[in-house]
Every structure is written in C-alpha cells, then in structure tokens.
Design a protein around this nucleic acid. Structure first.
Lengths: 218, 218
DNA sequence: TTGACTTTTCAACGATTGTTGAATTTACTT
DNA sequence: AAGTAAATTCAACAATCGTTGAAAAGTCAA
C-alpha cells in the first residue's frame, strides 16, 4: 500500500527532522537540546520524544534519512558507469565521479536540507565518538562495492594502498562538503566554500591522481 | 626570567589541560562538563574556572598550547628544507613533507597528549561552528607561508587550484591523524588507524600527485 | 613570625537538561 | 455517530549544567 497523501506540505515529524538536522549540523549532538529542536520546528517539546523515542533516536533518524537516498543514488551511478564501460570496467576517474557526483547533485542545487546534512556528515566522520561506528553502519556497505570496482581498475594495487587512498578521499570529501568556511578565510575571500562545482571539478582529478600514484604499477 | 621549576611533575593547571584535552577530543565542547574535567584531573571543580576564567577559556587554552609547539616545528622544518634546496627552492614533496612530518613526529611516538590533540583538531577542523574561525586563528598564518613556498614550486598554478589542493590535503590530514577507527572497520581490521607511519608514507605521495595534477603545467 | 599574595576548597545559585505519565485533541474506521 | 488508535499538549520530575563569593590553605619574601 502506498503512503497516504499528507495534508500539510510537511508533517510535524518531518519538520522535527529538518530542525534537528540543521541544529545538529551546526552544534553537534550535545550542543543541541530537545527544546531547541522543538522551538525551531514550531512543535511541542514532547513530540520529538514521542516520535523518535529519545534524543539519540532522533539523531539516528536524521542520519539515516538521507543516507538511504545518497546510497541509492551512488549505487545507480556506479552501476551505470559499469554498464557503459568496456570489458576492462570503468576507469578510476569514472568510479570516483560516480561516488562524488550524487553529492554534487544535491550540493549544487540550493537545497538547504542537504547542505545541513553534509555539514553534519563532516562532523560525524571525523568524530572518534561517532565516526568509526556510524559511518561504518550507514555508508561502508556501499563503499565496499566502490572499493571492489577500484580494485578492478587498479589491478596491481596493494590493498593497503587502496584503503588509505579511499581514506584520504573521504577526508577531503567530507571537509569540502561540510563548507566550514575555512578556505574562504585562508584565501582572503578569493575562494568560496559554496562553490561546490569548482570544488568538485578539482577534487576528482586531484584524488584520481593520488590513487594512480599509490595504486598503479609504474 | 626563566620559569620556576615545578615541584610536582605536573602542576594542577597542566593536569586540567590534559584532562580537558582528552575529554574534549572525544566528546566535543558541549559533550564535556567542567565536572568531568575536574574529576579526571583529580582537582576541585572550581579550579578550572579559576585558572582559565571560563569553559570557553579552557577550550582555547587547550587548543593554543600545542598549536604553538606544532607551528614552531613546522616553521623550522620549512626553513630547513628551503635552506637545503637549490636555487629553484624545495620540491612539492619536500614542502608537503615539512608540513606533515612534525605531526608524525608526535603521532609516531606513543604520546597520549598529542594523540588526543590531533583527535580534537580533527573535530574542530570540520566543525562549521568552530572550524572556520579557530583553525584560521591558530594555523593559517603559518599555512600561508607554506602556500607561498608551494607557489614557487608550482609557478604555473592557478591560485584557486592551489587553495583547493591545500584544502583537500587538510581534510585528508586531519581525518587521518584523528584516528577515528573508520579505516579499521572498512578494511575488516586489515588496516589500523594507529599505523601513523604507514599513513604518512602514503599521504605524502598521494597529496603531492594531486597537487601536481592540478597545479602543474602539462 | 608577620604580611601580602596566589592557589585551592567549599557550598550554593539559578538555569537548563532529557524524559514521562496523564490529559486532550485529531484522524480514521466501523 | 460511535469507537479506537494515533497524534499532540501540558506539567512536572530529578539530574546536571557553568559560574561565583567567601573561606581556607599554601607560598614566599622581608
């Protein structure tokens, strides 16, 4: 059975998720109170606990919501570039592009929700408290499929070099899409964190060159 | 006048800084209470406020303490590689190495304090709340000198490519030294976050190849 | 020892925290 | 229209939060 049509544009449950997403992205789990979320969502305090069980449950729901969307888009992009590739499979650049492009698609357009989500992912990914566990849970199953594709594109690679290369990619990616504003300061305003297209066009060749340097027989 | 010799191995002020460093690295600013710090440092609750004025003051002191040490080591490494270089100046690899090596020196040895500090930097760097401001304040003055050196090593580079390249380096670096444990999970235990030497030996050529790809005339 | 100063302790303040049981309203089926 | 379940509101709980004024202890020079 299909989802029943919502009367309001956004249900209260979704409003809570959006509010929590924005606040958690900026202030982190412990920097946000249920009252802040309720106020931003224009909803009673107790409602968030009712829908999500606890503050931790709300946090998980925020993380999961867009992780599913992103994973599906990435999987589709990977399968498409594999289908279009020759017998040797897609190139390193094509695989990396399939991994990054779905993020660009949501970062390029002016979608406030996704911007907050990437902000949040940047925090979670480099947090020792959450990063190791949560990123693994939500993203690693699909990342492994990308690793397999990269392994075919770089058949001479030492697996350790492949893993570290992906790790460097992950750090560059999450920081860039988090848009902390650091590059704006460093460049005295010449570069803007919001220029996602500019970042994307540079990240793919930068990372691909790193992969080749470490993982290609020379 | 020189600092007076301390009677105890560690003054209470230092114990507070160490305790705060470890806790802030793991749980973030809002995830740590003054009582947690006091308990870990085995010190009265009020003492941290007395020495550092406020929780925010304590946070700043923790960040500043090792930033000064790291900046001096990096500056010395940069000046040394410039002194040893030919008339064209040091290569990209040498400059990047001067930037990374001082972190390895503290990450390689079994120094708990520095490990916590890098963990903290990883969080701060990718936080939109603190990252843009604090990283700029504590690290960008010296980063600019490295950017100048890179500009000489890559004279044909578009400045925007240089800035983005450093940004990617920054993301890979801070995530790696934060040791979140993610790569351990992803590799099913084959790779260890704690293998700083292994990470370092791969990060330098990976990042250097990225710089050359973006910033070198082809 | 006296005196001045810094460091440390103690106790308490008002404010905010996440959660919950009970009451009320809304939505939907019969 | 009656009835049932979900959604929402309200009020309050105990626990924890950062900070601070005042008292006590420690330090060091004269």
């Amino acid at each position: 059975m299909a989802e029943p049509e919502k009367k309001k544009r956004q249900s209260r449950k979704e409003r809570i998720l959006d509010a929590a997403e924005a606040l958690l992205a900026r202030h982190g789990f412990d920097g946000v109170s249920m009252r802040m979320v309720a106020e931003r969502a224009k909803v009673d305090l107790a409602l968030a606990s009712y829908h999500f069980g606890s503050k931790q449950g709300l946090f998980d729901a925020v993380l999961l919501r867009r992780a599913e969307v992103l994973n599906e888009a990435r999987q589709a992009a990977l399968e498409e570039c594999q289908a279009n590739a020759g017998p040797d499979g897609p190139t390193v650049e094509e695989i990396i592009d399939a991994f990054l492009n779905p993020m660009l698609a949501h970062g390029y357009e002016d979608d406030e929700g996704w911007r907050h989500y990437f902000e949040l992912i940047g925090q979670v990914n480099s947090s020792t408290e959450w990063g190791g566990q949560l990123m693994t849970k939500y993203f690693d199953p699909l990342v492994r499929r990308f690793m397999d594709a990269l392994k075919k594109a770089l058949p001479d690679a030492d697996p350790a070099n492949l893993y570290w290369s992906y790790h460097f990619l992950s750090g560059a990616l999450t920081l860039t899409f988090a848009r902390t504003g650091r590059i704006d300061h460093l460049s005295n305003g010449a570069i803007h964190s919001d220029d996602m297209l500019g970042a994307y066009k540079r990240m793919v060749p930068f990372v691909a060159a790193g992969f080749r340097e470490l993982c290609e027989k020379k």
